[in-house]
């Protein structure tokens, strides 16, 4: 295992698709706690140092482009990375923003995002929380790739959940909307148990350390004035802890983009669109490109 990891480290990511994107490297919360953070991004060691309200990112003494948004420091090695995707809910003053933590996982970014989009595993992996037998059916939903915004949108997703959120007191049929506005980031909107008219936001921002090693940054931007940060965090950590061994037991660890590589079922519509979308970008790093 050590040898595998060594071999992966020797070659630095030179995939223009990855290099030209912004990537999360540390939450402001973690940065404030430690003052600095040493981590990996696209096979390169980077150091983030708090500076005023923001941060400075360096790679081998050279400055790396950075910005602060959604409670995170983002970095890019690109010449002109396009602006970060919009999540307007972050600006709504009455929402709770809770960073639920960052976890290291031995998996590619693509596998982590695909798992986040998948509803089929809820009753088995998150039994008693996000799903429960015999309510295992993934009802038909819609998926589209928005050309304007260059993102995947899955709508009309519904699932029966015994405990959809920390504030739930009973099982409910829950509505989901998924957005994938970045190859390594996904945002989920789900019915809020506290406010029928609005949707809670749960995000996963994946920091690709290497092709098969990530830091998964998760958090919530929700309507809930009753639960403590600790309760919200514990709820999300329990769910992520359940996903982790499943993610780490998927082989190959890189996401295969060839449509014939793995056999999808109807419930995997969003995953099919996601793989197709990544392939259309010409992504070759962290994935197994089609035709290889």
């Amino acid at each position: 295992m050590a040898q595998d990891r060594g071999a992966l480290m020797t070659e630095l990511c030179n995939d223009p698709v990855m290099l030209e994107h912004w990537h999360p490297v540390v939450s402001l919360e973690e940065l404030r706690r430690h003052g600095r953070c040493r981590t990996m991004l696209l096979d390169r060691a980077v150091e983030i140092v708090a500076q005023g309200e923001g941060a400075v990112v360096r790679c081998e003494a050279a400055l790396v482009g950075s910005l602060v948004q959604y409670g995170y420091v983002w970095a890019s090695f690109g010449e002109a990375p396009k602006p970060l995707f919009a999540v307007p809910e972050f600006d709504e003053a009455d929402r709770r923003f809770v960073v639920t933590g960052v976890f290291g996982v031995q998996v590619s970014a693509g596998r982590a995002i695909e798992n986040f989009l998948d509803m089929g595993h809820f009753p088995y992996v998150h039994a008693g929380i996000l799903g429960e037998e015999p309510h295992t059916e993934v009802k038909d939903y819609d998926v589209e790739v928005s050309q304007n915004r260059d993102e995947i949108l899955a709508t009309r997703c519904r699932f029966y959940q015994p405990k959809a959120a920390v504030s739930s007191d009973a099982g409910a049929e829950v509505d989901y909307i998924y957005r994938v506005p970045h190859p390594n980031c996904a945002v989920l909107y789900k019915s809020s148990p506290m406010d029928a008219a609005r949707l809670d936001v749960i995000y996963i921002f994946v920091q690709p350390m290497g092709q098969e090693r990530i830091r998964a940054h998760t958090g919530m931007c929700i309507i809930d004035d009753a639960s403590s940060d600790l309760e919200i965090r514990s709820f999300q950590q329990t769910i992520f802890g359940q996903d982790k061994p499943i993610l780490e037991n998927q082989y190959p660890r890189r996401l295969p983009l060839d449509p014939r590589a793995e056999t999808p079922i109807r419930a995997d519509k969003s995953a099919i669109a996601y793989r197709r979308w990544l392939a259309s970008k010409g992504l070759r790093w962290g994935v197994i490109p089609a035709g290889v």
Partner: peptide
Amino acid sequence: ETVDVYPEA
């Protein structure tokens, strides 16, 4: 009683 060990230490 849950103690916020990670990430809050």
